[in-house]
Nucleic acid binder design. Structure first.
Length: 200
DNA sequence: CGACCGATCGTCT
DNA sequence: GACGATCGGTCGA
């Protein structure tokens, strides 16, 4: 499998990168324990102009500082005190674009995902939703700043191609506070995939 | 089904 | 001191 190169993440159009990430494979390798899954749902956060983004209006804090880094690194933050949400930083230095990985279809290391999540059997809840993705993959806030060129955390292309018309879009989840920006179709997902969050 | 609620804590005001 | 880019369980219709 080919690891996605830095150039993939350094493009200006965060919506295009988000769409391109659908069907790619997220891999973690912590101490030789490999888990991987196909990305089936993402959301784009379009920098300082996007009310739903942590970096809206150029807000810059110690938490969000990593969003202003060169594209191709991880931004992981804690949500509701419980869930670690994994994002990919894109575009260039000082421009805080990011893409939230919301759902995977498990490929490798399913036993390991079960033990990390404490679930008994592998069903579509294993890697459905951003909190579950990080839990199953062993991703933690301490991984913020990791390069996606690392051997421990990267995104690969195994040749999978989404069929024509299979990538759908919709408004983002849980961003009602963002006013009119909550209506933007910045969420992309594989049509009819069980692991996509939202409806059953 | 849908609505609601508790868990749990770092971050920002 | 309030509140989230969430989840999973429970309750009632």
């Amino acid at each position: 499998m080919k690891k996605l190169k830095p150039d993939f993440f350094r493009r200006a159009n965060v919506l295009q990168i988000a769409k391109d990430l659908i069907g790619k494979v997220l891999v973690t390798n912590w101490n030789g324990i490999i888990t991987s899954g196909r990305i089936v749902e993402v959301e784009a956060y379009n920098g300082v102009a996007d009310k739903a983004s942590h970096a809206f209006g150029g807000r810059r804090t110690s938490r969000t500082e990593i969003m202003y880094a060169e594209g191709g690194v991880a931004y992981v933050y804690l949500c509701y005190g419980i869930h670690h949400l994994f994002n990919v930083v894109t575009y260039k230095k000082e421009i805080p674009h990011a893409i939230l990985i919301r759902a995977l279809e498990p490929i490798k290391g399913i036993d390991q995902m079960l033990s990390r999540t404490g679930k008994k059997k592998a069903d579509y809840t294993l890697t459905k939703g951003p909190g579950n993705v990080s839990k199953a993959m062993g991703i933690h806030v301490s991984h913020t700043g990791y390069s996606l060129q690392s051997k421990k955390l990267f995104i690969g292309d195994d040749g999978f191609v989404a069929g024509k018309g299979k990538i759908r879009s919709s408004p983002r989840i849980g961003v009602g506070y963002a006013g009119e920006d909550a209506l933007l179709h910045y969420r992309f997902f594989l049509d009819n995939n069980l692991y996509v969050s939202g409806k059953k």
